[in-house]
Simulated assay, not measured.
Amino acid sequence: MLTLPKLTMRLKNKVIIITGSCTGIGKAIARKAVSEGAKVVIHGLDEAPGKELVSEMGNDRAVLHIEDLTREGAAERLVAIALQAFGKLDAVVNNAALVKGSDIHSTTLPFLRSILEINTIAPFSLIQAALPHLTETRGAVLNIGSVNAYCGEPNLLAYSISKGALQTLTRNLGDTLNRENHVRVNQINPGWVLTENEIRIKREEGFSDDWETKLPKVYAPAGRILRPEEIAAAAIFWLSDESGPISAQVVELEQHPLIGRNPPKDMSVFEG
């Protein structure tokens, strides 16, 4: 008789802060993490879906914090909530991001600064605040970047700059903190993901309700774009002890080669 290996929870009793986890990729990561035995700090700006998610997971497994990460002391408060609720901190997932279109002509300096504050400076601040506690647990940081870090879409200039900077942050700290603090820092760069926010943005841009079913092969060779749950499945490896001492790595989750692939501005194929 074939004996199957006993399944174990890959994140059993690990405490993880996940920013931007009331919806989208962050929500999927939170759900997957809890299913693997973790306790999580849910964070976001929209209280209603956050409360619903905590209720789904249970108060013994999740706690909610609603706050703009650009506020002074926000990072320290997130860390304090994790310690107060669960007594330690094993990992941080920097997922929260602001996605707004701009190009060289429309990107003002205040706009660029606002994107950098959320997408690059806030992750740095949270790593800095969490570091003493991650050092104690030999923990991990997982940054959620974007394939736009390499070249970027023409209409996502500021966003692409911010994700390029986040990638450099990951490479730099992933080396330094692994050597000096035994804290691993890695990054996932997702491609195009069908999140609630992406659906909302496309509707606001005038795309048809069924745009995701009309994707040309240049965007989606498989006939569809990625789902948040697929990003979450990959995230668990980097948050678990399975990834061992691996640090300073950036992994692309996309269905086509991405270096040099720069989609055109005209996406009218989805409209109408």
Results as ranks from 00 to 15, higher is better:
residue 163 K to H: 01
residue 17 I to F: 07
residue 229 E to Y: 07
residue 188 I to F: 11
residue 12 K to L: 13
residue 197 N to Q: 08
residue 182 H to C: 02
residue 110 P to D: 09
residue 60 D to N: 11
residue 34 V to Y: 13
residue 42 I to E: 04
residue 257 P to Q: 14
residue 133 H to R: 10
residue 128 Q to C: 01
residue 111 F to E: 04
residue 246 I to N: 08
residue 180 E to A: 11
residue 97 A to I: 08
residue 103 D to T: 11
residue 221 P to F: 03
residue 214 K to C: 08
residue 32 K to C: 10
residue 3 T to K: 12
residue 130 A to P: 02
residue 165 A to T: 02
residue 216 P to C: 09
residue 204 E to V: 01
residue 167 Q to N: 09
residue 57 M to V: 04
residue 243 S to A: 15
residue 231 I to M: 05
residue 218 V to K: 11
residue 268 S to C: 09
residue 107 T to V: 06
residue 118 I to H: 00
residue 251 V to P: 00
residue 85 A to F: 02
residue 210 D to T: 07
residue 253 L to F: 08
residue 49 P to E: 13
residue 159 Y to T: 02
residue 135 T to I: 03
residue 20 G to K: 14
residue 50 G to I: 12
residue 83 L to N: 04
residue 41 V to S: 05
residue 163 K to L: 03
residue 117 E to P: 03
residue 216 P to D: 07
residue 70 T to V: 09
residue 69 L to V: 03
residue 142 L to T: 07
residue 190 P to C: 09
residue 118 I to A: 00
residue 262 N to W: 11
residue 237 F to L: 15
residue 119 N to Q: 05
residue 207 F to A: 13
residue 134 L to E: 07
residue 104 I to A: 15
residue 71 R to E: 14
residue 78 L to D: 02
residue 33 A to R: 06
residue 88 K to H: 12
residue 125 S to F: 03
residue 86 F to C: 04
residue 215 L to R: 09
residue 59 N to D: 14
residue 153 E to Y: 06
residue 268 S to M: 09
residue 156 L to Y: 10
residue 146 S to W: 07
residue 57 M to R: 07
residue 133 H to T: 01
residue 155 N to T: 12
residue 235 A to G: 06
residue 228 P to F: 12
residue 218 V to Y: 09
residue 28 A to W: 11
residue 101 G to Q: 15
residue 177 L to Q: 08
residue 163 K to C: 03
residue 150 Y to K: 07
residue 259 I to F: 15
residue 207 F to N: 06
residue 8 T to L: 09
residue 38 A to S: 06
residue 215 L to N: 08
residue 196 E to G: 15
residue 244 G to H: 04
residue 139 G to Q: 01
residue 91 A to E: 08
residue 124 F to C: 08
residue 43 H to K: 04
residue 66 I to K: 04
residue 81 I to V: 15
residue 59 N to S: 14
residue 1 M to R: 14
residue 29 I to E: 06
residue 146 S to Q: 10
residue 141 V to C: 06
residue 246 I to H: 05
residue 233 A to H: 11
residue 217 K to D: 13
residue 52 E to R: 12
residue 258 L to W: 06
residue 42 I to V: 14
residue 73 G to K: 14
residue 22 C to V: 15
residue 31 R to L: 15
residue 175 D to L: 12
residue 145 G to R: 14
residue 135 T to P: 00
residue 48 A to G: 03
residue 191 G to N: 04
residue 125 S to R: 15
residue 75 A to P: 02
residue 266 D to F: 11
residue 186 N to Y: 04
residue 195 T to Q: 11
residue 110 P to G: 08
residue 234 A to N: 11
residue 215 L to H: 05
residue 136 E to N: 08
residue 39 K to I: 01
residue 7 L to M: 09
residue 56 E to Q: 14
residue 188 I to R: 11
residue 202 K to L: 02
residue 8 T to H: 10
residue 118 I to G: 00
residue 37 G to T: 02
residue 74 A to M: 05
residue 217 K to M: 05
residue 147 V to Y: 08
residue 67 E to W: 02
residue 139 G to P: 02
